[in-house]
Design a protein around this nucleic acid. Structure first.
Lengths: 213, 213
DNA sequence: TAGATTGTTAATCGATTAACAATC
DNA sequence: TAGATTGTTAATCGATTAACAATC
């Protein structure tokens, strides 16, 4: 317990909170009303102590002897992660991946809604994707500013990604989920998360025996 | 330098190697022949010392005074990550995301090839996706065994993912890239990497001011 | 040679874990 | 009450960084 929030919470702790939240949602769907740090840890492959320590950065949410109320902790995590509202997200790139993201039904009940789709291909501009009309990237900056969009997803080829990132930052975006296989250069204060499947596959092949073939 | 490889390399080090490799490929395309740890670090937003320390787990690849030969270090990283051959990958799930992955052109020159696509939907079985015929998941175990597939991608809804994972493991798969928003339970020796866009978006909203709206 | 940069050591920093008093 | 589990402290563990001799 503490009065005013002072020490910043380590980013590695923050990165686990969405996993806790996701698991709590499952537990709630399964009808669980109470969960212990041990049970939550078992689901996630973490240690109970780590979960308790992580949560202790934000307050006291459990009860000795029983554990955490699932609905309550879930609510608290949503508040901590600023998910008590829905964030409008701009999607840049209306290719195969952009289509998949625009059609993905898993955003809305976890705090996000793709509200704008951009592409620079005249063939795609004006088409409809996931209920949205694809807009020209030339309109991007103005639209993002007007709608005060803070979150964007980059789903363009690597060669175009840095330019898109620059424009997004210029338009006031400060959270970027980047599917392009390239490290982006962004100013301090802008957060980038990376989603390159090949990077994760390559990470795993390290542990695979180089097969005979 | 050491004789026989003894100490295991920390996983956090392994996780950075694909990023080094990716950046070296870019540098090679840009025509760079030599790169210093400082330049590589600048590109990646890391410290030069970290890159040198990471690489030192595997050998001595640089030259005092100049740095690393791009082509040589790239080759070495490919060998370390077992990327001197192409890995056949099974894709499970032929929905929007599965389509996007099957059509993605970025796998082949980075060591992977989607060779099999499975789905349990009779509407999809027999259809063609990215040049491959969608097979029934009922054939999965036999096909994976027969072709000795070690790497798979899960692109099915969360509700189906654990069952798919169990079947993949049973079929001998030991590296799973999981797009379903759920933590998988797998035996020791099976590696899972997660790709849940919402988890990464939620990580970032922690740092965003909860907007007025 | 002088300048630059590696590979490595030791110091620092930070994260995880173990343990337990508090308490439901 | 007895048993269980939290929140927290201190210890441990591991990763990052700083610094520099070696050397290209």
């Amino acid at each position: 317990m503490r009065g005013q929030e002072t020490e910043p919470v380590p980013d590695v702790v923050v990165s686990r909170l969405p996993l806790y939240l996701r698991t709590l949602t499952f537990l709630a769907e399964e009808g669980a009303e109470i969960v212990s740090s041990a049970k939550l840890a078992g689901r996630l492959g973490l240690s109970p102590a780590q979960i308790r320590k992580d949560l202790s950065h934000f307050g006291e949410f459990g009860k000795q002897g029983s554990g955490y109320q699932v609905a309550y902790l879930r609510q608290k995590l949503q508040e901590i992660l600023h998910l008590t509202r829905t964030w409008d997200v701009a999607l840049v790139g209306a290719g195969d991946l952009g289509h998949a993201l625009a059609h993905y039904g898993g955003f809305i009940d976890r705090g996000f809604r793709i509200s704008l789709v951009f592409d620079n291909n005249p063939q795609k501009i004006g088409r409809e994707v996931g209920g949205l009309t694809v807009l020209s990237t030339e309109l991007m900056k103005a639209e993002l500013r007007r709608r005060q969009i803070r979150v964007a997803i980059i789903a363009v080829p690597a060669a175009a990604a840095q330019k898109v990132a620059d424009e997004l930052v210029d338009a006031g975006v400060s959270a970027i989920l980047n599917y392009a296989p390239i490290t982006l250069n962004v100013p301090a204060g802008v957060n980038v998360q990376y989603m390159d499947p090949v990077v994760h596959l390559q990470h795993m092949t390290y542990y695979l025996e180089p097969p005979a073939q």
